[in-house]
Amino acid sequence: MEFTIVLTKGNHGYGTQMSLFPETENGWQQVEQGRIYWQPDFFTSDVSRQLFERLYQTLPWEQGSIKMYGKSIPQPRLHAFCGDVPYRYSGLTLQPSAWTKELSQIKQLVEEAAGQSFNTVLVNLYRDGQDSMGWHKDNEKELGTHPMIASVSFGATRRFVLRHCQSKTKLEFLLKEGALLIMAGELQEYWQHSVPKTTKISQSRINLTFRNVIG
């Protein structure tokens, strides 16, 4: 049996359904085997639009490929990777570009909210609603046990869905420009997440996921 909780921006920043989970200190929410911090207005709309344009114009975008059923298939999105160390996932090894001024500034603000430092950022460009991210966990050994993943969104609003691997409970966020979502605790062990395709979106979205890669 699947149980879905839809989280949207309400008068206090959270959808009323969020009260199903107890709030912990500093705005963190305790969910089923994990913790989530969600601030839909972490950056203002004006700042978000400026950062979107700057990142869109200056980052070294490329399209990676993944192997499925013995075939090499282009990923349904573009990406850029910046940081201090390489990152390996889904059979890919990403060599980092240098931190840009904008990425460094965003990282500093995100670290203050998260209470943790990060040494890499994977930036995904979803060109329209047909670009997507399939179900997966961010549980590579390079991230260590129970990693913290901080996600910042600019551009078009997209659905972000979490699904518990055992209970099948779903949490759905509508991530608009300027939103910050942080996943922590045991979340990457027990939950998968995805950015589904949609025919309703024609605008682009840039998403930054900050990680601390330990080798």
Rank of each mutant, 00 (worst) to 15 (best):
R77G: 12
L78P: 09
F81G: 00
C82R: 10
C82S: 15
C82A: 15
P86G: 05
R88I: 13
G91D: 01
T93Y: 00
L94N: 01
W99Y: 12
W99Q: 08
K101E: 14
E102F: 07
E102M: 07
L103W: 00
S104T: 10
Q105A: 14
I106Y: 08
I106E: 07
L109C: 13
V110A: 04
E112F: 09
G115V: 09
G115H: 11
Q116E: 05
S117A: 06
S117L: 05
F118M: 04
N119P: 14
N119M: 14
T120Y: 08
V121Y: 01
L125W: 07
Y126D: 01
R127M: 06
D128S: 14
G129Q: 03
D131A: 12
S132V: 13
S132T: 15
N139H: 11
E140M: 03
G144E: 06
H146G: 06
I149T: 13
I149Q: 13
I149E: 13
V152I: 04
A156K: 10
L162D: 05
R163V: 09
R163A: 07
S167T: 15
K168F: 14
L171W: 02
L171I: 02
L175R: 10
A179V: 06
L181M: 05
I182A: 04
G185K: 06
E186C: 00
E186P: 02
L187R: 13
E189H: 15
E189A: 15
W191D: 01
Q192D: 15
P196M: 06
T198R: 12
T198P: 06
S202M: 04
S204C: 07
S204H: 05
N207R: 01
